[in-house]
């Protein structure tokens, strides 16, 4: 018993620095992953299902929209009762969600979830 205690006292490991080192290496891994992700543009293309799911969740979280009425094929102004400014707002929110910049001419055409899903799915930089 006494010997065990003596040995234990000698091989005490500084827990704090270990934990910190662990954290640091994890951070490094994370940033490495981000770097790889940043350099790749085509290998991890979004699937249609993922695009659809994220588009719908953006539209559903829009304050004036009743989430239960949102389907993959609704017209923003005719079906959801939104106006043209809301339409622009939704397209801007989609830009943020998928880290895109949609030119004005294209953005004006996107007036339904169907067109939004199609546009984003076919966009090479959507992430």
């Amino acid at each position: 018993m006494a010997m065990r205690a003596a040995i234990l006292r000698h091989i005490k490991v500084p827990v704090r620095s270990q934990a910190l080192a662990g954290l640091r290496s994890r951070e490094w891994n994370l940033s490495g992953g981000a770097l790889v992700r940043f350099m790749s543009s085509h290998d991890e293309h979004l699937t249609k299902e993922e695009v659809m799911e994220r588009v719908l969740s953006v539209v559903k979280s829009f304050p004036k929209v009743d989430p239960s009425t949102v389907t993959p094929d609704v017209h923003f102004q005719k079906d959801l009762g939104l106006d043209s400014l809301d339409n622009v707002e939704i397209v801007m929110a989609l830009e943020e969600e998928f880290k895109l910049e949609i030119p004005d001419l294209e953005a004006d055409k996107i007036d339904s979830t169907r067109l939004a899903i199609e546009y984003i799915y076919n966009h090479p930089m959507a992430g």
Partner: peptide, 17 residues
């Protein structure tokens, strides 16, 4: 109309900056 929307978009884009 399109000029107004363009201004609206520009303002919202600047807000992100």
């Amino acid at each position: 109309r399109s000029e107004v929307f363009s201004l609206f978009r520009s303002l919202l884009r600047t807000a992100r900056d």
